[in-house]
Amino acid sequence: MSDPDRRKFLSFTTCAIGGGVGVVAVAPLVRLVVDPAGKQTVSSPREPLDLGPASRFVAEPMKVEIVAPVIKDAWAAARDVVLGAAYIRRVGDGLDARSAVCPHLGCAVAFDRAQNNYLCPCHDSRFALDGAKLSGPSERGLDQLPLQVVNGRVLLTWERYKTGQSKKEPV
């Protein structure tokens, strides 16, 4: 083997060993770091949540906190966790529930009693009583949440929807 050949061979082998060790060392690391991305790391209640008697809701939207009986967050479990809020109001004989999560970027929307509509404090999106968008950067109105009245009690199913798009799509 000539000297240049030998040097070429040694260089190649050194790089190959280094690369091999690098890949083997890095692969488990990458696998670990991306692991949670594909998982539901924070559980979300699938069962409808009981919000009490339907009679307590009136035409003006009332804020209700969404409290999950049990939530698992990675390694920790907790009872009675507040997940978010919804606004419920009476429309004729029925009830209408709107998630307080702004469809723009997920800030918490608040009911503005003075103007009788909803305001998102982050980027000033405004929504009408029926959830329709009035102004601001949000691409859609406030998301309606599935709600049933069974034996006079309100059962609400909590759902988070993707933000920043005009289509309403569960996360």
């Binding site: 949670p36 991305a37 790391t41 924070v42 979300s44 967050d73 990675a74 920790a76 993707k162």
Partner: peptide
């Protein structure tokens, strides 16, 4: 975008991860 979000949050929502 969605993958970035999941990687940043360490899953589907804000939490320990």
């Amino acid at each position: 975008g969605e993958t970035i979000q999941k990687l940043a949050l360490g899953g589907n929502d804000y939490g320990n991860l």
